[in-house]
Amino acid sequence: MEFSVNHPILFVIVGLVIAVVLAQSVYFLVRAVKRAKALGIASQTVKKTISSAAVFTIAPAVAILVGVVALSKSLGIALPWLRLSVIGSLSYETIAANNTLTAAGMQAGSTVTDPSVFVTVFWVMTVSIAAGLVLVPFVTKKIQGGMMKMGMKDKKWGEIFNNAMFLGMISAFLGYVFCDVAGVVKGQTAGLIPVCVMAVAAVVMAVLGLLSQKLKIRWLTDYALPLSLVAGMASAIPFTAWLA
């Protein structure tokens, strides 16, 4: 079969795999919704969880789509479509592709025309990120069981432990927001852009939270996070023009 990075057969294969991945999500969604009912969680709560998760996902998903476009220049559309629909990220896939293209003596960014180079990139992208894929089916029950046991032994500590994990993750990302501010002393103000964006998102979130409490507008809380996310992202445009 004559090879091209956008060969129809690639779309068929990728489409089938994505259908399977989608089926898994639907399966777990249906089971969890049923279980929520059995546990007596209000159907209103379930509906709100679904609608706000869907709204929240839009902006990050469009950002992922930007990644598909970026990678499609050298790899066609089908492979980036698959890779960014399953475990991995734009930065990981780009690094994996570039490492392989370099090893194959190709320039990053030029369209792959040799099928053997294409499958080589495919192999490296798949295998290098497979730790979670291979291990999660076998270790999750153990880890999760340990957490549940701890929560039962000392309920208060279980909760604090969980909050501490969340805060630990959030603090790492807050630290990252400030990673380039040291450049300001040398006159490089671009490092302030993420700080300003974060501040805008934080202020919008706080204001929406207060508004919904004071004015009793429930739906504001449901969409506060996506609204603050989009406000922060939009503010990046003027901040970048000003500070970069």
């Binding site: 902006a59 990050p60 469009v62 950002a63 930007v66 604090i160 909050n163 501490a164 969340f166 805060l167 959030i170 990302f173 807050l174 990252y176 927001v177 852009i193 993420p194 700080v195 964006v197 974060m198 501040a199 805008v200 998102a201 934080a202 919008v204 979130m205 706080a206 939270g209 506060a224 996070l225 603050s228 996310l229 989009v230 406000a231 922060g232 992202m233 939009a234 503010s235 990046a236 445009i237 901040f239 970048t240 023009a241 970069a244």
Partner: peptide, 25 residues
């Protein structure tokens, strides 16, 4: 710039919620 700054925008909002509820920690 908007797509480049998705993480700061996301964690700015999330941080407000979790820090305000766990200030000491």
């Amino acid at each position: 710039p908007a797509f480049d700054m998705i993480l700061p925008a996301l964690f700015g909002g999330l941080a407000v919620v979790f820090i305000s509820k766990n200030a000491k920690l």
